[in-house]
């Protein structure tokens, strides 16, 4: 017999390398074609974002603080604004007052925290990491209450805390592009994807920082300084990076999906 005529396009490829690329490498043999484009895009984007931040962080921070103050005032929280400076730029920080804790109150806080720690140590039903996290919070509050009991006051007043938060916010803005840029440089994102990930992370952090600054001020006007160190240490800069990794993870999942359907994207070891 003789075979039928083949339509154009079904003939074997003339590209020798295509022969190997036709098969998706097993995960243990996979690697990526080394390219400086991704790294360059990440570096360039990071530098640009850092430059933009250096130029505009002060007006941005002022805008956020004013927005926070305006929203909180409308909601009836007793907050105001005052001038401060950081990295040579004039800024505005939220001002608020906190109730003062009496000795008995502090003792009760200490006892309640200790009781909570005992309960969450004995309890077995919530998953261990959750119990550890609750206990850690309680431990910090308990430590702070003890410190307050003996020292009489914390190292930070309401104003000091507000300035600290504001400065932390700005430092975090500067750190995030470098951190995210270093991470995305490792992956074969397209240049616009690299830029998008960095910009989205920074943009998201503006929002998070702004909302958090307001939330902390509102909380402290009600609770007093007892929660101050817990808020800063566990829900301060530590917290920023978790959703940033969340955004990074979403980008990675998108990238991974694209890579799995594109056999030619991979190289064999």
């Amino acid at each position: 017999m003789t075979a039928a005529q083949a339509p154009a396009g079904t003939s074997p490829s003339r590209d020798e390398a295509a022969a190997r690329r036709a098969i998706l490498p097993h995960r243990s043999y996979r690697t990526l074609p080394s390219t400086a484009t991704g790294a360059f895009a990440a570096l360039a984007c990071t530098v640009l974002v850092e430059l933009a931040l250096a130029l505009y962080f002060a007006p941005l921070a002022r805008t956020l603080t004013r927005a926070d103050a305006s929203v909180l005032q409308r909601m009836g929280f007793p907050v105001g604004l005052e001038s401060t400076a950081f990295l040579g730029k004039a800024l505005t920080a939220l001002t608020f007052t906190m109730p003062v804790h009496r000795y008995l109150e502090l003792v009760l806080w200490i006892l309640a925290c200790l009781a909570g720690i005992v309960v969450f140590t004995v309890l077995k039903s919530p998953p261990a990491p959750l119990r550890y996290f609750v206990n850690f919070n309680l431990l910090i509050v308990c430590s702070e209450a003890t410190y307050l009991l003996f020292a009489g006051h914390l190292g930070y007043s309401a104003r000091g805390f507000s300035v600290l938060m504001l400065r932390t916010m700005i430092v975090t803005w500067f750190v995030i592009p470098a951190f995210v840029g270093a991470m995305v440089a490792l992956f074969p994102f397209r240049a616009w994807e690299t830029a998008a990930v960095i910009v989205v992370c920074v943009g998201y952090d503006f929002l998070l920082e702004g909302v958090r600054y307001a939330a902390f001020a509102a909380l402290l006007t009600h609770t007093g300084p007892i929660l101050m160190s817990d808020l800063f240490l566990l829900y301060g800069p530590l917290l920023d990076i978790i959703p940033i990794i969340g955004i990074f993870a979403i980008a990675l999942a998108y990238l991974s999906r694209r890579m799995q359907t594109s056999v030619g994207a991979w190289e064999w070891l």
């Binding site: 910090i140 430590s143 702070e144 410190y147 020292a151 914390l154 190292g155 930070y156 000091g160 600290l164 400065r167 932390t168 430092v171 975090t172 750190v175 951190f179 160190s229 800063f232 240490l233 301060g236 800069p237 530590l238 917290l239 920023d240 990076i241």
Partner: peptide, 19 residues
Amino acid sequence: MLLFLMGALSVWSAVALGF
């Protein structure tokens, strides 16, 4: 945490450590 209680925390180190 101790530096915070004493009011001597460095913002940069707090952010770096958090990351």
